[in-house]
Simulated assay, not measured.
Amino acid sequence: MRCAGPPNHFSPRRRAMPSRKRKPLVYIHRLEWNPYEYYMNEENEKLLQSFAEVRNDGNVREPMTHEALVERLRGVEAILSLNGSRAPEITREVLEEVGTVRVAAVSHWWGDLSAKAAEAWRQAGVEVIDASDACNQAVGEWALGAIIAGLRRFDEFDRRMKSGEKWPSWRGVAGQLNGATVGLVAVGRTGRWLLRYLKPFDCRVIAYDPYMKKKEAKELGIELVDLPTLLRTADAISLHAPVTPETTGMIGRKELAMIRDGALLVNSARAALLDNDAFRDEMKKGRFRAYIDVFQPEPPPEDDVLRTLNNIVMTPHVAGTTDAMYHRCGQMAIQAIRDYLERA
């Protein structure tokens, strides 16, 4: 018979294993129109999971009740709002009943829907981070490309060479951005990105923005002017104003007549800034050229005169729409949540 020996009172005790810190819980609310996969590629999935547990309703299609949302949000510390299409379902009352949500990051601002949700979330004591600058960057980049392409007249040379002209002359045709005057109508978030992209070029930037102070304009390296001066002076005019009662139709028949011959008008903001009929009448004269990404209505009718004119380049509301833009939207919002949670 084998006997056990005496207990070894001098053997070291086992050290207790340190408990792992629980990852914070992040909730992704349901979306519509632009699907979850637009924003969350494999890289973004890994980034989010590197610091958080995820409760994901991004692909849920049916509306969610108050009770269902309270249940899904229990224990959640952060909301990842990939776009605001269904963000208002998460009401102030839902968040107050849950009581654990500290922060929400919006990756793609969705107009009034995101604004409505953000207001309710702030009222519930949630810090709302607008992390949607990827879209502004993309639109600013499109505007820069339109200005360069429009001043250099890429489309005109392309059309002439494809129509049988063997070697078009460059004389008296193309301009260039270096040495030009660029006029910005409003210097909001997108306008500021365009301004940043213009920095490497030796161009003069003037702006009409009644809400900007002269001191800020000086710091940004731009000259504030009134709208008539901008329209009469600029080689390229880029619109960046939001649509408000004040700005709707702000570029009307009188203002369009002020644009000098040979200039370039770029609109990546909203069609409502232009008087629709006056704009079409002016473009038929061929005095100046335009690069337009937004229309009223969208899409423009098949018989819209704009589709027939060689002095306008049209793109189908894609200034802010690329695969990279959506992925960057998701990435920037995820990083914003991570940074907030690390600071907290």
Score class of each variant (00 low, 15 high):
residue 209 D to F: 00
residue 325 M to A: 08
residue 91 T to L: 03
residue 101 V to Y: 10
residue 327 H to K: 12
residue 290 A to E: 02
residue 171 R to T: 14
residue 139 V to S: 01
residue 71 E to W: 07
residue 317 H to L: 08
residue 106 V to L: 02
residue 49 Q to R: 15
residue 182 V to Q: 01
residue 343 R to N: 11
residue 99 G to C: 06
residue 236 A to P: 05
residue 217 A to Q: 03
residue 30 R to P: 11
residue 145 G to A: 14
residue 167 W to E: 08
residue 240 H to F: 03
residue 12 P to N: 13
residue 174 A to I: 02
residue 113 L to S: 10
residue 196 R to G: 03
residue 38 Y to L: 15
residue 67 E to R: 05
residue 179 G to M: 05
residue 8 N to I: 10
residue 244 T to W: 01
residue 75 G to H: 07
residue 257 A to N: 08
residue 46 K to G: 11
residue 37 E to D: 15
residue 32 E to N: 13
residue 266 V to F: 04
residue 251 I to S: 00
residue 179 G to F: 03
residue 208 Y to L: 00
residue 223 E to K: 08
residue 314 M to W: 09
residue 70 V to W: 10
residue 160 R to D: 11
residue 260 R to F: 09
residue 83 N to T: 09
residue 250 M to S: 05
residue 255 E to K: 00
residue 310 N to K: 14
residue 43 E to R: 13
residue 99 G to N: 07
residue 94 V to C: 06
residue 195 L to S: 01
residue 46 K to S: 13
residue 230 L to I: 01
residue 65 T to I: 08
residue 130 D to W: 04
residue 245 P to F: 01
residue 98 V to M: 04
residue 24 P to T: 06
residue 267 N to I: 06
residue 189 R to A: 10
residue 106 V to D: 07
residue 258 M to W: 12
residue 107 S to T: 12
residue 245 P to R: 00
residue 18 P to R: 15
residue 112 D to F: 11
residue 74 R to D: 14
residue 244 T to K: 00
residue 188 G to H: 01
residue 264 L to Y: 02
residue 83 N to H: 05
residue 331 Q to R: 15
residue 326 Y to Q: 03
residue 162 K to P: 07
residue 308 T to M: 12
residue 30 R to C: 07
residue 197 Y to F: 14
residue 208 Y to D: 00
residue 256 L to I: 07
residue 306 L to K: 00
residue 271 A to Q: 06
residue 244 T to D: 00
residue 12 P to T: 10
residue 279 F to T: 08
residue 84 G to H: 03
residue 59 N to R: 15
residue 311 N to Y: 05
residue 56 N to C: 12
residue 124 A to L: 06
residue 88 P to D: 11
residue 59 N to K: 15
residue 232 R to Y: 05
residue 163 S to V: 02
residue 185 V to Y: 09
residue 174 A to L: 07
residue 122 R to C: 08
residue 260 R to H: 15
residue 45 E to H: 12
residue 106 V to Q: 02
residue 303 D to H: 08
residue 273 L to Q: 00
residue 14 R to K: 11
residue 318 V to D: 06
residue 302 E to Q: 14
residue 334 I to R: 04
residue 17 M to H: 09
residue 6 P to V: 14
residue 99 G to D: 02
residue 2 R to W: 12
residue 315 T to R: 10
residue 314 M to I: 10
residue 26 V to D: 10
residue 111 G to Y: 02
residue 317 H to D: 09
residue 8 N to V: 12
residue 270 R to P: 01
residue 201 F to T: 03
residue 291 Y to H: 15
residue 172 G to S: 07
residue 222 I to T: 00
residue 63 P to D: 04
residue 74 R to W: 07
residue 10 F to D: 14
residue 186 A to M: 06
residue 224 L to T: 00
residue 157 F to C: 02
residue 201 F to W: 12
residue 61 R to V: 10
residue 103 V to I: 11
residue 170 W to C: 04
residue 46 K to Y: 05
residue 305 V to F: 02
